[in-house]
Structure formats: structure tokens, C-alpha cells
Design a protein around this nucleic acid. Structure first.
Lengths: 208, 208, 208, 208
DNA sequence: AATGAATGAGCTTTCATTCAT
DNA sequence: GATGAATGAAAGCTCATTCAT
């Protein structure tokens, strides 16, 4: 059991992150103020700076949080996948689902990040590249295995990511109609890379 | 008569737009300052306000400029296309090419716009919807004609747009290796919507 | 006959003064812009500076214009007045009437001037002192003649001026019900200085 | 607990109000800058905005402060007055004395207010109307009681206010010779409304 | 004389960050 | 650790005034 003090600590940090996520998502990076974040976390403004070195770093941490989850989930889902294309498909599924579970973070990563500062954009780019690398590796492997026609794996990975991003943004706008569309997105992407024969797996197991 | 020579007039306006495009592209909407834009256009800050009512409107004008070009070019290229899929393909080509011709504007529209103010985002959304509508119409028509399998046209149009956006952003990052990749992007998108039979037209005629 | 050129000259000056009076009256000294004054006078902004050295001087000229008229009219009306109290009463009448004939200038002198710059306020004070002096002289003379009880002539003159000012401002607010109230104002002031016996003259002759 | 000592709190607020009063009085509404007010209060410019939402509101608060005092004092002094004319006279006394005690605020209310923004002028007008209403009520009552001749009570109240205003402005200019003149002002006003029989009370009790 | 585009100082207001308590 | 008052740099925008044409 953790002593209440430590709990308090963790509670504060988490409360601030949650408040920050909400405020950034609603107001955007620039319109969000530390005062508002602190207010929602029920702490004083100065307290914010006990947990984060700056507004920018706090935002960066939120981005990282989402991508950590995403990458972990992606990797988990890929385990035990027979074909490369199934791995690819499951990656897509994982990304779509993770983002949807954290609407506020998703909105930050997908919509607000580009309005933030240069350093944050670079940070986001760096984080994204992990995911891109995974996708590109799969695609290259699929080409090797003769499952899909040859092509620039890196570019294809980018295009897949772009389409997913748009699907998520679209979903964000009209939040609610989630899962049904996923199948179509997945089919779109599998076809896009040339994997027309590959069946879109029925999603049998829930995420959590 | 005191006209500062039509040349002068146009020159100032254009110099300011060019300066604004450069600064917005490099620094982002919020980091960009009127002082910097004015400095690059070799005018005083007050002069900026002789040509634009506000920073926001100036940015909006830049967005509109690019999209006007894009939509005009898209419509021009679609004329005389036999098949719907060819129309779709040419639309994609036109978009990719237009954006590439105005790298600074492209960066603004693709990367910075979401960091701007609410009114600007809405404006951008409105403009984008024209393009989306065009794509969705084509897709619906292609389904009707049996050229591609049935599916949600609006969603597919979104996904196409998202992939294109990413392709352009990708290109932006490593500006230079432009045209060669286009063919792959086009094939990706045609396949994505299920149009595997459709050949990717050789691009014979230049844009201008 | 004046040559058209000279007419043009005078016309410009007058047009600018009229425009300035209107704009100052409507918007107040600070909200009034040279651009707006020039626009209403159908000239370019630069032209304003051919006729006035500055915004401040232009405003000062308007103040002076009204007071010149007022003092001239006051002096005219006082001629041939038998009693000092009649002179005083006619002065009051003249002031009330002059101000009412130039509503825009009145509004400037009475309401806007104090919001202007320090130099303008001093200028206004200087101009007002002429009128005050006239009133004070009359009052002193009336005391000498035993028509009214002794008292501080300068202070009384001030109080008379203050009451008149308020009467005019009041009238400005609900412009229209002019002359009828004058009799009451005049009676108020005559009584105020102790001249209860003096009859309030019927106003027989028009102003112009 | 981090209260900066209630003293500190009040001190800041009061220091800023005092500084604002001084600067507005000396420079006028428009010429006054937040920077100067802050400088005189020995705080940074941003601190001003911790205590006032805007320059305009700060000015409005100063106006309200003076009029609150004035109306409170007027009402206090009127209690226990036998005759209506005594009530009227005491009202005048109260107004004159209150304004004299706060020379800086008086200067703001009497001289600078009309140069401020439209909203502030309306606010001032609204506040003044309370005082006017009081005076007008007294006058109407005095007429009813046969103490003074009939006449337009609202107009007379205005004239009384105007004369008082000028007396105060006059006193402002040559601050020092205050109280002695009051008796003359009060006599002037009593006579003005036709109350010649009424004696001007000896002022026996001080204000504070 | 007339023009009106250009100037740039100067204003109010915001907010990330600090630090004495 | 926690607080929140205080800071002050920085930005968008206005407009009286100038001057090349």
C-alpha cells in the first residue's frame, strides 16, 4: 500500500494531466492557460510547475502518454498473428481503438499538436516514426513474402498513417459512430497496399 | 493623380502576402508576428493594416488562395476524362501538383491551419468540404457504374484526402523528390477504393 | 466677385471645419479621426494639413469660432440696454441662443472639450474668461447701483455660467424644446444674483 | 496560508486606486496610461489587471466611489431637516463639501469624465440622475408648500447642479479658499429657485 | 495645391513563469 | 510541498502626421 502522501503526489500529477488534457483538447494549445488547467485540477497555478517544467513539456507528456499506450497495444495485438497482413491489420485496429478510447488525447495529438511550438512538432514527429517504422517493416515483409506487390514501404506506411489519421479526425468530429466504420477503414487500407486477397479479420476479442 | 503605380500597389500587396506565407510557414500561426511579416516585406507594421484588416484575415486569404488554385486546377484536369476512375485519379494528381507548386502555402494549409483560431479552422473546413464533395461524388458514381465495390463514399473520400495530405506533408519534409512518388500515391489510392483494374494513367501533359 | 480659385480655397477650409465639427460632436475628440473628417469634406487626408497644422489646432479653431460668435452677439445685444440687469439678462439670452444655433459646436465646447488635451482646455478657459469678465463687470456694476445685494462678482459670474452651461447641455440632450425654457433659466439667474425686482424682458427681436 | 496580509491586499488595491485617481486627474482619461498608473503604485503593469478588469472599469470605479460618498453624505445631512428648503440647502452643502474632500476624484468626475468612453459617460449620467432626482423632489415639494414660486422642478434641479459644478471646478482651479465661498454659493442657489425668505443656515457641525 | 500610401511610436491587454511566504 | 500575487515581455492594432508624386 502506498502512503497517502505518495498517493497525494500521484493524484496531483494525474489530476493535472487530466485537467491539461481536457483544457488542451477544448481550447487548443495556445488558448489553454496554466491558470485554467490548475483550476480544474483544484490546485494553485504555482503547483503546476512542481510537476511540469513548462506548459510545453506538459503538452509533450500528454502526446507521449497516448503514443506509449498505442505502441504497447499495437505490439500486444500483433503477437500471435500468423500472416504479416494480419499483423498489419491488427496494428491498424489497435491504433484506431486506442485513439478512440482517449478522445481528449486524440484530439490533442491529431488536431492541436500542429498548432503548438516547433519543438513539440518535432517531438511528435519522432514519436510517430516508431509507429511508421513498424508499419513499414510489415509492408516490406509482405512484399518479400509476395503477399502484396512491390512498392516504397516507407511511403506506403505514411499513406496508411495519413488515412488513419483522417479517419480518426472524422470520427472525432462526430464522436459516437466508432467501430462500424473501422471495418471499412481496414479494408480500404489493405486494398490500398495491394492486399486484396487478405480477409479482414472479424474482431472477436475486446481491447481491454 | 497619385497612383503609386499599379505596379507599386500590387507589389506591396504581393510582397506582404509572400512575406506572410513565408513567416506563417516557418513559425506557425501564433509565433508569426506582424512585425516580422512587415520586416520581410520591407514595410512598416502599420502598412500591413493597409492591405489586411487583421492577422487572421491575412492568414485566411492565404488559405483561400491555395484552395482556389487547387479547385480550379482539379476541375480543369477532370474535363474530358472518360471514366470516373480517371476523373478521380486526375483529381488526385491535380491536388498533389498544386500543393507542391506552393510549398509555403501547402505547409500553412496542411500543418499550421489547425493551430490557428476557431474561425480560421471553420473556414478551412468549409473549403475542404468542396474537395471532399467532389471526391465523394466520383466514388459514388464509380460504385454505381460497378467499377469499384460498394462502400461509404464520404468516408472513403476522407481517407483519400488524409492519405494525400500525408503524402504532401511527407514531401514537404524532404522537398525535392516530388513527382516520382506521385504514381505510387495514385496507385495506392486507386487500389484503396477497390479500383484495381483501373490503370494509372501515364501523365503525359504538364500542368501549366 | 471672388475668383473660383479663392472660392475653392475658402470652400475647402469651410468644408473641413464643418466636417470636423460634425465628427468631433458625434464621436468626441479622441474617437474622431482625420481620415473621417477628410472623407466627409471630400478631400484627401493630406489636404487636412494644408488648412490646419494639427488636429488639436483644428479643434481649437472650432471652439474659437463659437465663442467669437457668442461674444459678438452678446455685445450686440447689450447695446442700448438701459439697466445693468437688462444688460445681464440680454447677455444670458444671447449666449443661450448662440449655442443653440450651433448645436454641433455647442456639443464640442460643452461636452467634448474637457476630454481633449491639456492645451485645449487651457485655451477654452482663456476664451471663457472673456465672457466671465463681462458678466462679472455687470454684476459689480449692479451692486454699485444698489440693484442687487453685494457679493463676490467673479464667483457669481461663474455660477451663472455654470447654470447656463447645464441648461445648454440639458437642451442638447433633448434638442428641440429650446426657447420656452429660456425664460425660466433667465428668471432663475436673475433671482440667483438677487435681482428679484427686475422683470424678465419679453424677447421681441429675433437674433439674426 | 499565503494571504499577502490583508493589509498588503488592501494596500495594493488602494495604492492603485490612488495612483489612478492622480493620473486620471492630471492627464485626463486618454492621456493616462496603465504604465504610469502602475509606476506610481510601484507595481508592474500586469498587476493593474489583477485588481481591475480594464482601464475603463477602473475609471468607472473611481467615479462610483465619489458619488457613493456624495449620496451617502447628502442623505445623512438631510435627516432631521425641518423645512424642505433646509433640506435642499443641506444637500448643496454636502455635495460641495464631499467634492472638496476628494479633489482628485472631483476633477475626474467634473472635468475628465466627459472625455472618456461612451459607456463611462452613460454610467456617469446614471449616477448623476440620482442626485438630480433628489434635488428635483425637494424643489417640487417646496413649490407645493408655497415656499418658492412654481416652476419646472427638473430644469431648476439641473441649473442648481450646473452652478454647483462650476463652483467646484472654480474651487479646483484655485484650491484652498474653500468653505468661505460656500455660503455665497448656497445663497445664490436659494435665491435662484425663489427662496428669498429662507435664511442660509449657519454651518455649525462639521462634516466628518 | 492636392493626394493618399506609408510611417512607427505608443497603447491596452495577456499569460507563462517565479518566488516570498 | 503548496500557494497565488506579482512580474514584465511581447503582441496586435490605431492613427496623427509626412512627403514623394
Amino acid at each position: 500500500m502506498t502512503r497517502p502522501a505518495k498517493e497525494g503526489q500521484t493524484g496531483r500529477q494525474e489530476a493535472l494531466l487530466a485537467a491539461a488534457a481536457a483544457v488542451f483538447a477544448q481550447q487548443g494549445y495556445h488558448a489553454a492557460t496554466i491558470a485554467e488547467i490548475a483550476r480544474r485540477a483544484h490546485v494553485a497555478t504555482g503547483t503546476f510547475y512542481l510537476y511540469f517544467p513548462s506548459k510545453e513539456q506538459c503538452f509533450g507528456q500528454l502526446i507521449a502518454t497516448l503514443y506509449d499506450e498505442v505502441l504497447r497495444e499495437v505490439r500486444r495485438r500483433r503477437r500471435g498473428a500468423g500472416s504479416v497482413l494480419v499483423k498489419l491489420d491488427r496494428s491498424v485496429q489497435a491504433v484506431l481503438q486506442c485513439f478512440r478510447q482517449r478522445q481528449d488525447l486524440a484530439s490533442i495529438v491529431l488536431l492541436q499538436a500542429s498548432g503548438a511550438t516547433k519543438p513539440l512538432q518535432e517531438r511528435l514527429t519522432a514519436i510517430e516514426s516508431d509507429l511508421l517504422h513498424l508499419l513499414a517493416t510489415d509492408l516490406a515483409e509482405a512484399v518479400q513474402a509476395g503477399l502484396i506487390p512491390p512498392g516504397d514501404a516507407a511511403l506506403r506506411a505514411r499513406l496508411v498513417l495519413g488515412a488513419m489519421r483522417e479517419a480518426l479526425v472524422y470520427g472525432l468530429a462526430q464522436s459516437g459512430q466508432s467501430a462500424p466504420a473501422d471495418a471499412e477503414v481496414r479494408r480500404f487500407l489493405l486494398w490500398a497496399v495491394g492486399g486484396q486477397a487478405a480477409p479482414v479479420e472479424e474482431e472477436s476479442s475486446a481491447t481491454s
